[in-house]
Design a protein around this nucleic acid. Structure first.
Ligand SMILES: [Mn+2]
Ligand SMILES: [Mn+2]
Ligand SMILES: [Mn+2]
Ligand SMILES: [Mn+2]
Lengths: 219, 219
DNA sequence: AAATTTATTTAGACAAATCTAAATAAATTT
DNA sequence: AAATTTATTTAGATTTGTCTAAATAAATTT
């Protein structure tokens, strides 16, 4: 099934708002999220209902059908992978990527996203730490730790960054730390809380507690 | 000035068709190129005329104004850089990229394309050999020759291909001829107009006049 | 030169996505 | 419980981009 840009935005929005709460998604929540009028939301929701993508109960709210959810997850996957691309490859700061990925998510090509996924090293989650659905639409929750909490000898993959600032992203770039990099904890220095690590079993560096507190690791 | 997707497609189309011929671009040529009805073309051309992006003379045809040309070149730059990305980074074949780049060219972000340009190593031309306008919209033309016109002993770099049919691209792939390959003319055969060449000082092959007529060389 | 064919424009319609203003339902306050 | 406020829907309008069918202009053939 192919959707228009607007339909895709609505489907993804419903999905994301549904994740945050149990109940049906309200018209105003949608209007707020998408910066459109409540009237427009009602309009589109009714269209999506007629297409079997959502279940809509007047004055109650909306929820995704299985088909709608499947579509929403595909769009979210595209959105998140493009975010990884923008941060990891083009060195954008966090604040700038949302608007661009919001456009890129609509690019329609069967093979493009899977190639992008591979090119990016099959990242586990977006720069914001949101888990990226796999090509089958499955969302696999791996446990995650702060790099701070890894013990000596342990290793894992950099999967998200908690700090937004350009300064931090630049620091990471300079130290060859990127999403998908393999980090091994060599030694934890008691005195100042810093950690000796290797990146991709190659570069050995020491990073401070402030750094390890802002890096999320999966196995 | 910001344009809609459709406007951008029209502007780029007029630019590309204008490059191939001296005279005004006709309605049918546009309709053919964009796979839309002649009536739709006339409609949109009139809108673009009212916005000062094209000069349109009824029944005669259309040409870009300076403002229109500036916009068209920006879109073309985006289109070509995304093509490089798709081939160079995501390993798409030349035949698959057109449709995707046709979508990606509409992504709107001031900094995105310049970062992409840098990420790709500031390529001189697209996979099809079309020169990529720089960030200022300047198109710097290096001199190029048909491979046919190189004399014996001369060598140069494959920088463009005049025929982008799948058949020709497949032929080139099979013979290890690619953009950036170094070709040296070993001998020009008078009898049938064919040429003996080496590719990257490695493979020695004979190619026909029809082939050399479709390969452009820079030094 | 007239007839015919081809190219182009105009007219009228339509779908998609949005808006504002008015109507109505639901929730909250008094 | 009634009044008021808030949320939601409906009605009507607008913009964008497209189409088909009919009208007209330009080019070509007879
Ligand atoms: Mn985001
Ligand atoms: Mn979007
Ligand atoms: Mn192309
Ligand atoms: Mn396009």
């Amino acid at each position: 099934m192919k959707h228009t840009h607007a339909e895709e935005n609505y489907l993804k929005a419903i999905y994301m708002l549904s994740e945050k709460q149990e109940s049906l998604v309200s018209t105003t929540a949608m209007a707020d999220f998408l910066h459109t009028s409540a009237a427009s939301i009602t309009d589109m929701i009714q269209k999506l209902h007629n297409k079997g993508l959502v279940i809509y109960r007047k004055y109650q709210g909306v929820t995704l059908t299985d088909r709608g959810k499947e579509s929403a997850i595909k769009i979210l996957r595209k959105y998140l992978l493009w975010e990884v691309f923008l941060v990891d490859k083009l060195k954008f700061g966090w604040s700038e990527i949302h608007e661009i990925a919001e456009q890129l998510e609509h690019i329609d090509c069967d093979t493009l996203i899977d190639r992008l996924d591979h090119f990016l090293g099959n990242p586990y989650c977006s720069p914001h730490g949101i888990v990226i659905p796999n090509a089958d639409g499955k969302i696999i929750d791996k446990p995650r730790w702060l790099l701070t909490d890894l013990s000596e000898g342990a290793s894992g993959i950099v999967s998200a960054i908690k700090d937004d600032s350009v300064a931090f992203l630049q620091y990471l770039g300079k130290r060859n730390i990127y999403l998908g990099a393999k980090i091994t904890v060599i030694e934890k220095i008691q005195f100042d809380g810093s950690t000796d690590i290797t990146i991709d079993n190659q570069y050995k560096i020491n990073i401070s507690r402030k750094i390890t507190d802002n890096i999320l690791i999966t196995l």
